[in-house]
Nucleic acid binder design. Sequence first.
DNA 1: CTAGAGATTTAGGATACACTAAATTTCAGA
DNA 2: TCTGAAATTTAGTGTATCCTAAATCTCTAG
Lengths: 227, 227
Amino acid sequence: MTALPAREPLTRSTEDYLKAIYRLSSGGAPVSTNDIAGLLGLAPASVSGMIKRLSEQGLLEHMPYRGVSLTPDGRRVALRMLRRHRLIEAYLVAFLGHTWDTVHDEAERLEHAVSDDLVERMAHALGNPRVDPHGDPIPAPDGTIAEFIHVPLAEIAAGESVTIGRVDARDDGRLRYLAQHGLVPGARIAVVDREPFGGPLTLDVAGQRKIVGPELAALILCERGGG
Amino acid sequence: MTALPAREPLTRSTEDYLKAIYRLSSGGAPVSTNDIAGLLGLAPASVSGMIKRLSEQGLLEHMPYRGVSLTPDGRRVALRMLRRHRLIEAYLVAFLGHTWDTVHDEAERLEHAVSDDLVERMAHALGNPRVDPHGDPIPAPDGTIAEFIHVPLAEIAAGESVTIGRVDARDDGRLRYLAQHGLVPGARIAVVDREPFGGPLTLDVAGQRKIVGPELAALILCERGGG
DNA sequence: CTAGAGATTTAGGATACACTAAATTTCAGA
DNA sequence: TCTGAAATTTAGTGTATCCTAAATCTCTAG
């Protein structure tokens, strides 16, 4: 991981705030105090106080009454946590028999406790994956992250071919179902036919015909183009 | 792990105090405030304050000015931490390429973050070991711990046969050296001959003659009797 | 048997981070 | 443009844990 300038050790609270702000700041717009409070389950007043402290540490930029955004240092911390979280989840699933239902809370605690060294060992054991099994990109050790442009399968026209980029299902049942039918990140699929108005789609998955309903089709996020 | 009566979640501080007190209370004698402070690197006054809180929670028995001892609940917590610590160390060495030099700090942090479920998965992956690679016993999930009576190899008389119980070397070099010569926990060895006054010992290890110096012989702890 | 060194506890204070209640700011709609 | 609801910040508290300095206890050496 890119070395952060030497500073006081980050607390668990600090890491959680920065993670939350990163998660909420898709699009680069400033993040509101209320949204942070909602995501972390805290009172807005508590968040105001913490924002002040994190700003003084140079991790946040705060425009009073307007919202906060991450500084480069803050983003580095957030991405490091995201890398840890996703690698820990992947490791627990791959090597210790966890299911995707159960890993989140474990990772949520472990991500604050592991060393960079241990994270990299887990990454190595996993073959240094670039995405986790949902297809979510794993930030690199240097804090860069691949940004994919994802379109729900539900919006792909008949005749078009796409690559599955990630799958938005968080529950194990759906994830397993999709995996059984070859609908996993990286799979190349074609939309053979589709009913109008949110009806089912007929797919070609590795030469086989599959039919998926609109609900699942909304969760399967695709990358257009070359594949 | 034996369920503790439902109580407020234990903090990291609480777990560290109980671990330290357990470590210091070999022999059952009450543990002094000063010794705890020394082991944890805190001011004695801070320890006094924490002792009061832990006593109110029923985790310690405090005789003012005399010292503290663990209650059954306190001991259960301490043994759970010890189980976690030793299993985490063993897991990191066995599966993630750590060396015994480097695992301690990692385990020290992880032991507060892992769930019981994860600990048991690691134990399972390791084959549910009863001792760690030093020969230190790993407390069982129910909070019981095997108490071995260990005698340094240096004190074993010529002609006597013993089983290596544990090895007190903390550094990787010695540990590797001993392992190469079959001097590992569980090994059955006989003292063939020995020089007086702390000289080297001649051993029979699995039919082979080995000579060890007094320094190493002091670190190899043996169980007398049946083996 | 007692003085004083050393151990322990108490007193008082700091920091981090949470809360509730009150004050302030923003901004959409009349 | 004004006004009030919603969002945000400030003010004042509480808890956990640490600290230093001062008070108190214990126990040994004389």
